[in-house]
Design a protein around this nucleic acid. Structure first.
Lengths: 189, 189, 189, 189
DNA sequence: GATGAATGAGAATTCATTCAT
DNA sequence: TATGAATGAATTCTCATTCAT
C-alpha cells in the first residue's frame, strides 16, 4: 500500500535530548518517592516542571519512560561502584571498603538504590526491562570479581544485593562495624 | 443516594468460612503472575472464582488484601526453610543443603519466592507491609544462625536473599555445583 | 499499572471552550430534576451531551462541579431580583411587586430557585459551598434593603426565603392576592 | 394462585418498637452530622450501636428509615414550638419570645432543626416525604396564627422558616436584639 | 426473631493515550 | 515541534438489599 510512509534514515529523531533526560531523572525521583506502580505522566510532568504533553511527546508509552529511568538508575549505580573500585588501590582493607560502599548506597545514593531494586520487581513482568537488570547484575559481579577472585566476587555481589534490598526498607542505618564483620567473613578463606 | 436504587444481591453460595483465605491465596497467584502493580480486585476475583463484590467485602481495601497475601507468602517460605533446617540433622554438607534450598525456592516454590520479594518493593511505599517483611528477614536470619553461628548465619541470610532476588528474574536455573561452591566459600572460615 | 493497558482516547470533537460552562448548566438541570444527592457524573454527562470523561476532566471532583453549578444558580437568581428591583421605579405598590417576584421564582425560574435552596442543604456539610450561599443571602438582603429600609428589607429577605423554600415543595401556585397581603403586612409600619 | 399467602390481621408486626425508635434517632444524628445523602445503613448501625442487619430488619428500605427519621425530627420541632406557645400566656412581648424560640432552635435544638430543613430538600424528589413536610408547615403556621391573627401568623411562619434555613448554615448565633427587632417589625400593624 | 455474610450494581476518580491546534 | 484538551477504559470502593444460618 502507499499509505504507509517509511522515509528517512534509520536514526531515531532525538527531539530535545536534554528535556528527555530531565524527564527520565524526574521519573527516578517519582519512583523513589511513590514506587513503580504510581509512576504516571502527571506526576513526572509535575516533578520535571514540564507540561503534561511533553512526557508523552518524548516517550511514546509509559513503559518507554520506565525503561530509560531504570537504565539511568542502574548506570548511576554502576558508575558509583566503579568509582569505588578505582579508589580501592591503596585500600587494603576490602571489608571496610565494602561497608562504606553499602552505607553510601543507602544514604547519599538512596534514590538510585531504591529505584534499582524496584527494577527487579518490575522486570519480573516486563520483558523490556530484563536486559537492563541483567546487565546491572553482570556489571556489579564483574567489578567485585575484579577486586577479588571469581567465587568471592560472586559471593560479594549477591551479599551486597541482599543487604541493599533489606536495608532499603529499614529506617535505620546499620553500623559500619557490623557490615565490615560480615564482609570479613565472606572474604576469609 | 437512596432514590432510584433498585439493586441488591441475589445469593448464590452459602456461608463460606474459608473464603477469606481463598481470596488471599488467589492474590498470591495473581501477584506471581502479574506483579503487585497489577493486583486488582477483578483479577483476584477471577482467580479465586468468587464474585467481584466478595473481594471487597472481605478486604476493605486492596492494601488489606495485599497485607494478608504477603504475610501468607512469607509464612509459607519460613515454613519451607524450617522444614529444610529440621532435615539438616544428619546432613553434614551445609553448602549442598543450601544449594538445594535455593533450587527448591526457584522451582517448586517459585510463586511464593517471587511474591515474597515483591513484598520488599511494595513495602517500600506501604508502611502496613513493613512488619511482615521485617519479620520475614528476622525469621530467616534466625534459622540460618541456628545452623551455623551469628555472623555466618547473617551472611548466608543476605546471600540467599540476593541470590533469590536475582534468580527470580532468570529463566534458567543455576547449577547445583555453582551454588554449592558459593556457599562453601561463605562457610569457609 | 502500565503493562497490559492498551487504551486511550479516540477523539470526536474539537476544542470547545464553552464546555465547562455547559457542563455546569447541565448540572443545574440535573439537580433540579433529581436533587443534589443524585448528582452524578453520568447524569450530567448525559444531560450535557458530552462523554463521561469530559465531566471529570473539567471538574476534578464532583464537589468542584457542585460549586460552580450552585454559584451560577444563585448568580442567576440575584440577576433576576436585580432586574426586578430595577423595574420597581414607577411601581409604587411594593407588596404586589414582591408577590410577582415570588410567583416568577416558582414558575419560570423554578429550576434556579430549587437549585438555590438545594444549596443550603448541601452547604451544611460542604464548607466549599458556604461562601456561595452566604453571598447569595447577603446580595438578596442588600437589594431588599435598598427598596425599603434596613429592618424591613431584612424581614422581607427572610420571608421570601421561607416562602420559596415552602413553595418549592408545593405542586400548586399560591394566589397573587394572598402573597400581596402577606407582604403588605410586612411593610405596614 | 396458592403461592401467595395473605394471612393474619391488617396490623403490621411491631417487632421491637424500642429498637426501631432508637434506630430512627440514630438516623437523625447521622443526617445532622453528614447530610441526607450520606445516610447509610452502616453509619446508622454504628451510631445506634446495633448490628447492621438490624437496620434492614426494622426498615425494609432506606427510604422507610428516612421517612420515620424526618417525621420524628419535625414532630420534635412541633412539640418544641407548642411548649413555647403554651408558655406564652403571661408573656406579652411576642417579638422577644419569638427571638428566644429561634435562638433555641439553632442552639439546643440544632440537630432537629437541621434535619427538619434537610427534609424540604429531600422531599422535593421523594414523594413519600411530602406529607411529613407539608404537615410540619401546617402545624407551625397553625400555632403562630393562634398566637396572633391569620395573616400575621402566616408571615411569622415564613419568616421563622427563612431565618432558620439561613441560620442553620451560620457558625455564629445572631443577637437576641436583632431577632427581636425583626419580629417587632412583622408584628407592627 | 435477628444477624451478618454475600452479592451486584453503580459511584467517583484516575490516567494512558490521541490528536487538533 | 510542542502542547494540553479530550476521551474511554478500567480501577477502587461503597452500599442497599437478600437470605442462609
Amino acid at each position: 500500500m502507499t499509505a504507509e510512509r517509511v522515509q528517512g534514515g534509520g536514526r531515531r529523531r532525538a527531539y530535545d535530548p536534554a528535556r528527555r533526560e530531565r524527564i527520565a531523572r524526574a521519573a527516578i525521583a517519582v519512583i523513589a518517592k511513590h514506587g513503580v506502580a504510581d509512576l504516571t505522566h502527571r506526576k513526572v510532568a509535575a516533578e520535571a516542571g514540564v507540561p503534561l504533553g511533553s512526557t508523552t511527546y518524548h516517550f511514546a508509552t509509559l513503559d518507554d519512560l520506565l525503561e530509560l529511568a531504570l537504565l539511568r538508575a542502574t548506570q548511576d549505580n554502576v558508575a558509583q561502584v566503579e568509582r569505588w573500585a578505582a579508589g580501592l588501590g591503596g585500600y587494603p582493607d576490602i571489608p571496610s571498603a565494602l561497608a562504606d560502599l553499602v552505607l553510601e548506597s543507602v544514604t547519599t545514593q538512596r534514590d538510585e538504590t531504591i529505584v534499582g531494586y524496584a527494577l527487579y520487581t518490575a522486570a519480573l513482568h516486563r520483558p523490556s526491562l530484563r536486559s537492563a537488570s541483567e546487565a546491572w547484575d553482570a556489571e556489579l559481579t564483574r567489578i567485585f570479581v575484579g577486586c577479588t577472585d571469581e567465587t568471592t566476587g560472586q559471593l560479594i555481589a549477591v551479599a551486597v544485593c541482599g543487604l541493599l534490598v533489606q536495608l532499603s526498607l529499614s529506617e535505620s542505618v546499620p553500623s559500619r562495624e557490623w557490615l565490615r564483620s560480615l564482609f570479613a567473613k565472606a572474604l576469609a578463606s
